[in-house]
């Protein structure tokens, strides 16, 4: 028996909106730790890792570890039927082949349940070790989204370079080139407006903007995004989900041979 009651149901709606175009189907895993997912895009160069910790749910019952395969566009369609202020409860029976999403309006005057068929998904699960990154950039998530959107009008790839001068996002395309430099700016009025760069060594990596733009669909989940970079390692783009966990995107760099 699984029963997870999330007071801030909009969080789950936003999570689905941020991953449904990157990943078509995925196994949601539920254990005492929480509700989690790890899935790769169809070309296996990008990965999303989600964790919503059990403590973040108002009620969290998970009698045994369970993995539920879901088609994400279908799940997103169902969650779109929940109001932004609704409480969402996820329910499933052990060994069952369906999951139920229950939506309660804040004043309890409307209760809806949507039952969705589960599917069997064979997916590779990757062990991602904690790594020391050469550079970690924390910046407003909206600023990062704007940069990715602007650069993708010029080119297909972005070179992210971190030096002591700051972080530079560059692209080039048929019509020209673009460079956007953000300098460390820790002395702003609001902490969420700060750009903080922790650099152990300079690093420069190239990524496909198509994926970066897809990751920025998680912008409504967090004011701050953290970008962790190391040579020869996939970049990690992390959005912390208030007091509940995180959504992390990994993307393999483009390499010249």
């Amino acid at each position: 028996m699984l029963e997870l009651r999330l007071l801030q149901g909009s969080l789950l709606k936003k999570v689905l909106e941020s991953i449904k175009d990157l990943v078509t189907e995925a196994n949601f895993d539920c254990s005492a730790t929480g509700f989690s997912l790890q899935a790769m895009d169809s070309s296996h160069v990008a990965l999303v890792a989600l964790l919503l910790r059990s403590e973040g749910f108002e009620h969290f019952r998970c009698d045994r570890n369970i993995s539920m395969g879901m088609k994400l566009v279908n799940m997103a369609m169902m969650l779109k039927c929940a109001g932004n202020d609704d409480i969402i409860t996820i329910k499933a029976d052990d060994g069952g082949d369906t999951v139920t999403f229950m939506f309660e309006s804040p004043n309890q005057d409307k209760i809806a349940d949507f039952e969705m068929k589960l599917m069997n998904i064979d997916s590779e699960h990757l062990g991602i070790p904690e790594a020391e990154y050469q550079a970690i950039v924390r910046m407003p998530s909206s600023e990062f989204a704007r940069i990715c959107k602007d650069l993708s009008t010029i080119g297909d790839t972005v070179i992210i370079s971190v030096t002591k001068e700051g972080v530079k996002f560059s692209t080039k395309g048929d019509i020209g080139t673009a460079n956007i430099v953000c300098r460390q700016n820790a002395t702003v009025d609001k902490p969420e407006d700060a750009i903080i760069i922790e650099m152990k060594e300079p690093v420069s990596l190239t990524f496909a903007l198509r994926y970066m733009n897809s990751f920025t669909k998680a912008t409504p989940l967090a004011n701050i995004v953290t970008i962790s970079l190391s040579s020869e390692l996939p970049v990690v783009v992390e959005y912390k989900i208030a007091e509940m966990g995180y959504i992390r995107f990994y993307l393999a760099p483009k390499i010249e041979e």
Partner: peptide, 14 residues
């Protein structure tokens, strides 16, 4: 030539 390696070249399968 520019290419992208798949993620299993960086992370092990569990």
């Amino acid at each position: 030539e520019v290419f992208q390696r798949v993620l299993v070249t960086y992370f092990e399968c569990k």
